[in-house]
Simulated scan of single mutants.
Amino acid sequence: MNNKNIERLIPKAINLLQSFPKEKIYQGYLASFGPTVITSGILQTVAFYSGDDKKKKVIKLMFDLIKEDLKTNHITLLNVLEENENYKNYEIKNRILEASVACKLAIRTFELKD
């Protein structure tokens, strides 16, 4: 992960979070996303988060944040991961982890409800 990339992504994350639900549960999903990627793997985590409607919003948020960096025309992050080889998934994993940290920091700027 690169701190400069994270710093660059934070303002974009704040803009995307403007239209995001302001519920504390999403703060928890964002906080647990990174550790889940580390322990379970990127493809498994994205597949797991894609199976739930609320968690799917977290995946979409991060994908919207890094879509330009990935230079892809895929519709979902899961499609990107399924179609790339393992060596490319490592690079994608780093971008997603950077997006995860940026979102986790950005959501703290909002007042959240229970």
Rank of each mutant, 00 (worst) to 15 (best):
P35A: 02
R8E: 09
E91L: 12
I14S: 10
N5C: 06
I25T: 08
K22T: 02
S100V: 04
G28N: 14
K12R: 12
P35T: 02
Q27R: 15
S32D: 13
R8F: 12
L105S: 08
R8M: 09
Y29P: 00
P21N: 04
N86P: 08
E85Y: 07
E82S: 15
P11Y: 11
K71A: 07
S19K: 14
L61Q: 00
V101G: 00
M62T: 03
K67H: 12
F48A: 06
L78M: 07
A47C: 05
Y26N: 02
E91W: 07
I6G: 03
L70P: 06
E98V: 02
F33H: 01
L81T: 01
T45S: 06
T72G: 04
G51K: 09
K67N: 09
I10S: 04
N5I: 11
Q27S: 15
A47S: 13
K113A: 10
A99R: 00
V101R: 01
L112N: 08
N86I: 11
P35H: 04
L16S: 03
E7V: 07
K22I: 00
S32H: 13
G51W: 04
I92L: 05
K60W: 07
V101D: 00
K88F: 10
G28S: 14
N89W: 01
N15Y: 13
E68K: 13
R108Q: 14
G34M: 08
I6K: 04
K12V: 06
E23P: 06
S32K: 14
F33M: 09
K56E: 12
D69A: 09
L43A: 10
Y87N: 14
K71Y: 06
N89Q: 15
V80C: 04
D114Q: 12
N2K: 13
K93Y: 05
E98G: 04
P35N: 03
I6A: 03
E23W: 06
E82W: 07
K56A: 13
V37I: 15
S100C: 15
A13G: 05
I92A: 02
L78D: 04
D53G: 09
L78H: 06
V37G: 07
K55F: 07
K93D: 07
P35E: 00
A31E: 10
L16K: 05
N94P: 08
D69M: 06
I59M: 03
L17W: 07
N86L: 10
S32L: 13
L77D: 01
T45G: 03
T39K: 15
K12F: 10
R95N: 12
K4L: 10
A102H: 01
K24Q: 13
K71I: 07
F63Q: 00
C103I: 02
